[in-house]
Structures are given as C-alpha cells and as structure tokens.
Design a binder for these strands. Structure first.
Lengths: 204, 204
DNA sequence: TGGAATTACTGAACACCGTTCATTATATTT
DNA sequence: AAATATAATGAACGGTGTTCAGTAATTCCA
C-alpha cells in the first residue's frame, strides 16, 4: 500500500521538522524560554499542529534529549576508543566534560533541568542516556578487573567519576564557580586538572 | 523621629512576611511552580504589593537563597568543627551532602536553578554562598599546609571535592541515578561511600 | 482639628505561556 | 462526484510575571 507508506513517511518528516526546530531553539534560547508558539511559527504551522505529532512539550524535550545523548555517544565513540581501559576511562571523562562545556544548553537539558524525566519515566527508559553511562561503566569494570584502580566496587567508582564530571560541568555552566574569583580561562584549566588529579589518585 | 523609624520597621516586617511565605512555598512546591499571585494570596495582599518590596521574582529568590545559605552555614558550624582539618574536611563534605539530600528544594535554588544568579550578579556577591565555600577552602588549605593530602593546589582540591559533592547531590535530586537500576536506599549508601572513598584516595 | 500632601495598596490590564477542541480545509475512497 | 477520513487551524481557557492608574489610609502642616 503506497499511500499509507507515504503518509507514514510524511509523518516522520513532520516530526523531524518539529524536532530540528525545537532542538535549535532549545539550544539557542533554553528550554523554558522556548515556547510552543515560537516553534510553530518557525516551521510555519499553527501551535495546535505540534500536538498532533507530540503529546506535550515534555515529550518534545524527551526526543531532543534522546538526540543529544546520541551526540554525546558519537563523541565518546570517536574520542574514547583506547584498548587500554585506564586510558579509555580518562578519554571518557575528558570527552564528557568537554562536551558539557562546549554545548552547555544541550548539557542542561540532558542532565540538569527537571522537566524531561516525566516522559522518560513513562517510557520507562532513558534513551541513549543508558548507553552513555554503560560506556563509562564498561571502562570502569575493565579497570577493576585488571586491578588498575584502587576502587573495589565498580558501581561506586562509576558513580564517583560521573558525579565529579557532572559537578564540574554543572557548577561551571550555572556560574557557581564565580565564588572562586578566578578568570574563565583558569577555571577551564582547573577543571581539566581536577579530572586528571582524580584519576591519578584512583590509580592503583 | 519615631514615625520614620516605625515605618522602616514595618517595611522590614513586611519584607519578612513576604520572604517567609516565599521560602515555605518555594520549598513546598518549587521555585517555578510558585506564582507571585499565590504568595500574595497566602499573606493576604494583592500581587502588586509584592513589587513594592521586591523588584521581581528573581530578587525574591536571591533573598531566599541568602537565607538558605545561612542554614547550610549553621549546619556546617554545628557539625563540622573538628580541630583536625582532615576530620573537618570529611565533616564538611558529609554535612554538605546530607543537607542537599535532606532539603532538595532548597539545594535546588542554591546550586541548580539558573534564575537567581541574575540578581546575584547585579548585587555583585553571592551572600553566604561565599562564606560556605570558604569553610571548605579553609579546611582544605589546612590539610595541605599539614601535608595530609596528596593534592598540591588547594584551589583544585576544593574544586574537586565540591564538584564531587554537588555532582552526587544534584544527579540524585534530578533523578539521573535511575540509570543505575538500584534502589533508593542503596543509592544513599553509595553516595556516602563515594565520598569516603574519595577522601581515602586523597589521603597522603 | 481639618484640609492638603504623602504614602500604601489595589486589582484590572498587558503580553505572554501550554494546551484543547470545534471548525475548516485537504486528501482519499467509494 | 459525493462521501468519508485525515490534517491543520486558530480562537479560547486558565494560567504566568509585571505594570500602573486609581483608591484608600496615613502623616503633615496651618
């Protein structure tokens, strides 16, 4: 049946059109400040139309988040590929933090804002987010298997390094490091050093 | 001049009335979900009146944030008082994380949400926030002076432990640890362990 | 003490927001 | 060509933060 195929294709194209516009606007203006009306205007449809393709703004964000995790995953697959798990762990961390600092608004909607998790809970999984975490967890597990680090519980170890990375990125993008009274360039250097030092301390 | 004294006193009382209501409601419902109208109704004034005492919602948050940091500071002064800087460092970290997990909505408006920093930038300082950070920085500096830890740069060391603590709390309160597929109780234990392990690794 | 001036407060109005739904336009099927 | 099914619309609903002309209360001064 050719017609329903085309209909399905057109529907997917419409969803793409919406998501592309939404992603660009979320990144340019932030999630909260981007209105459904503004997205609709950008793609030259009426506000109501968006609701024929996505059930609410939260679902829109869920999709954008999924794509954002896809980007992070691609970055990991490109830059964190060392066979040596210890090296790979370091690559994962630096890639993660660099991604966050380079795309603060994407990072925001992936890891900081509250909204999206509503839909994520309903759908029962955190698309691509899971995969990104596994990337870290695998490197960590291999490190422990090969007794390269001083942790024994790989879950706690993963929790720690992820939290450190997230803490560094999120305090930075939310301007909380202003309290340090240090120039932006210095902060960037200190963030890198912070990761390296932590990895150094972990080393068996 | 007694009258203008009383006027000033009444003005301060009014500001207290507003802030107390705002804080309670921010904590109960969150910042975004608390409307100016709702605060006004709670204290039985019209919405416009609030604007005679605070210039916008952001300034309201700035004040609430200041009080929240006051609470954290009090907690630190109560629970992190060991003479031994190493012990004190551990007390600071555990107090910080316990505070965040016990008061997630306060923590939210202190360290996570974007809004308040606008006013903080205008006012040029982060009231009480600075003092809380100094509490950590001092303990850290003493540790380094006494060569108790393997860091050399106290700023990087402070950055690291704060980021770790913040990462743990904020990923938890924003439900990102769901990816771990672990029960809430276990996560709480892993968070504590994560801090202890990190301190252990830091030890000289 | 009584009228003028100052201060405090109000609440309707403005320009937004996410979302819904009866209506209209388009496309497909019979 | 008419009937049906699908797609899109945009006005309307109940909400938001904020402003401001108008009113009520208080203080001041003759």
């Amino acid at each position: 049946m050719g017609i329903s195929d085309r209909k399905e294709r057109e529907k997917q194209e419409m969803r793409r059109l919406i998501i592309d516009a939404a992603m660009r606007m979320f990144v340019d203006e932030g999630y909260e400040k981007t209105s459904i009306r503004a997205i609709a205007e950008k793609i030259e449809y009426s506000p109501g139309t968006l609701y024929l393709y996505y059930k609410d703004k939260d679902e829109l964000l869920y999709e954008v988040q999924r794509e954002a995790f896809g980007k992070l995953l691609k970055a990991l697959q490109a830059k964190a590929v060392s066979k040596d798990p210890w090296k790979r762990l370091s690559q994962v961390m630096h890639t993660y933090v660099e991604f966050g600092l380079a795309h603060p608004d994407l990072y925001d909607l992936m890891f900081i804002i509250r909204a999206p998790m509503k839909t994520a809970e309903e759908k029962g999984d955190w698309k691509n987010g899971d995969t990104c975490f596994e990337y870290l967890a695998n490197a960590m597990q291999e490190c422990i298997d090969q007794k390269l680090i001083r942790y024994t519980d790989s879950r706690v170890a993963s929790l720690s390094v992820w939290s450190l990375g997230h803490g560094l990125v999120s305090l930075e993008v939310r301007c909380r490091f202003k309290v340090l009274q240090v120039s932006e360039g210095d902060i960037a250097r200190m963030i890198k050093k912070s990761i390296d030092e932590h990895l150094r301390l972990m080393k068996a």
